[in-house]
Design a protein around this nucleic acid. Structure first.
Lengths: 98, 98
DNA sequence: GATATAATTAGATGATTAACTAAATGACTA
DNA sequence: TAGTCATTTAGTTAATCATCTAATTATATC
């Protein structure tokens, strides 16, 4: 979970996620959208992959990246909790402060 | 928005948000929950404040911190967009899977 | 005013990170 | 198998970041 948030903290990586939301793309296609070297994009893709926010699959010469909606949903679950939109509301019943 | 994600990328800061979700707390109260110097906590609180994720208000000698749900919701909006749970769905007519 | 408490700001340091170039790997095609 | 395209890995560098201690600001009380 920490890795997910770390991955999301970079604007380039968030832009990559938005690109992948439209459709699956290869590393090369993704790199075209940025004014940055391909190795740098590869590094960002790896960060997203470590965080399980994207899935990669080799297709012959290319490597296809796609969004992993499951994990995105998990991260969103954290936010929902933060807003009290969850079962979470009965957790501070017996709670007293230190 | 970038600042919000940066702020969320640190586990200490996310923990602080969870503490504030329960109730408003002073900087000192928050610091008690962590094995970390008060200046460090102050630094984290400032990051959250810059990101507008929390609001601070002086109450006499203390400074009270509280969660800014509005901005948390904005960030969540970003996620919803990413999952296509939004009005966003008429933007990519030619998509192939549901 | 003097002093105590709450919290922040300043300045320093070690760790992490994002970016680059150059080199390596993997896979297709002649 | 040589050549080429796609992508990643290695190694480096500069910037950012989390943390600390020490000093400062702000408020309350005596």
């Amino acid at each position: 979970m920490n890795e997910s948030f770390k991955a999301l903290s970079d604007p380039t990586r968030r832009q990559i996620l938005r690109l992948l939301r439209e459709k699956d793309r290869t590393a090369g296609e993704i790199a075209e959208y940025f004014d940055m070297s391909k190795p740098s994009i590869s590094h960002h893709l790896n960060a997203l992959k470590q965080a399980k926010l994207v899935i990669d699959e080799r297709q012959g010469q290319h490597i296809m990246y796609s969004l992993n909606s499951t994990v995105v949903q998990e991260v969103m679950g954290w936010f929902l909790e933060l807003l009290g939109t969850d079962e979470d509301d009965n957790r501070d019943k017996g709670r007293d402060n230190p």
